[in-house]
Simulated assay, not measured.
Amino acid sequence: MAAGHNRATAPGPNRSLARSRPRYGEAAIKVLLLAAALVSIATTLGIVAALLEPTIEFFSEVSFGEFFGSTSWGPLFSPPAFGVWPIIVATLEITLIAVIVAIPLGLAAAIYLSEYATTRVRKIFKPVLEVLAGIPTVVFGFFAFSFVTPLLQDILPFTLDPRNALSAGLLVGVMIIPIVASLSEDAMSAVPRSLREGSFALGASKMTTSVSVVLPAAFSGIVAAIILAISRAAGETMIVAIAAGFKSIFTFNPGSEMATMAAFIASAGSGDAPVGSIAYKTIFAVGSLLFIMTFAMNWFSARMVKKYREVYE
Score class of each variant (00 low, 15 high):
residue 243 A to H: 00
residue 273 A to S: 10
residue 249 I to L: 06
residue 58 F to K: 04
residue 272 D to L: 13
residue 162 P to M: 11
residue 175 M to L: 12
residue 237 T to Q: 02
residue 35 A to T: 11
residue 151 L to K: 02
residue 255 G to Y: 05
residue 183 L to V: 09
residue 42 A to F: 15
residue 32 L to V: 14
residue 73 W to S: 02
residue 162 P to Q: 12
residue 135 I to Q: 07
residue 255 G to E: 08
residue 263 A to M: 07
residue 298 N to Y: 01
residue 131 V to Y: 07
residue 146 S to C: 04
residue 147 F to Y: 13
residue 278 I to A: 08
residue 274 P to S: 09
residue 6 N to L: 12
residue 294 T to L: 02
residue 191 V to A: 01
residue 207 M to A: 10
residue 294 T to Y: 05
residue 79 P to I: 12
residue 33 L to W: 12
residue 199 S to K: 01
residue 312 Y to K: 09
residue 125 F to Y: 09
residue 259 A to H: 00
residue 157 P to S: 10
residue 255 G to L: 05
residue 313 E to L: 12
residue 11 P to Q: 10
residue 85 W to R: 08
residue 232 R to C: 00
residue 295 F to G: 10
residue 88 I to N: 01
residue 63 S to L: 10
residue 88 I to V: 15
residue 146 S to I: 09
residue 7 R to W: 11
residue 218 A to T: 05
residue 50 A to L: 15
residue 249 I to A: 02
residue 313 E to I: 09
residue 97 I to D: 09
residue 297 M to K: 06
residue 139 V to G: 03
residue 59 F to P: 06
residue 277 S to F: 15
residue 91 T to E: 01
residue 283 I to C: 06
residue 137 T to I: 03
residue 83 G to Q: 04
residue 305 V to C: 01
residue 144 A to C: 08
residue 116 Y to P: 11
residue 200 F to N: 01
residue 201 A to P: 02
residue 36 A to P: 00
residue 205 S to H: 06
residue 191 V to R: 00
residue 32 L to P: 03
residue 64 F to T: 14
residue 295 F to H: 04
residue 8 A to V: 08
residue 304 M to H: 02
residue 213 V to N: 04
residue 82 F to P: 00
residue 163 R to K: 10
residue 101 V to M: 04
residue 288 S to N: 09
residue 53 E to D: 13
residue 63 S to G: 15
residue 69 G to K: 14
residue 119 T to Q: 13
residue 155 I to K: 03
residue 106 G to I: 04
residue 297 M to S: 03
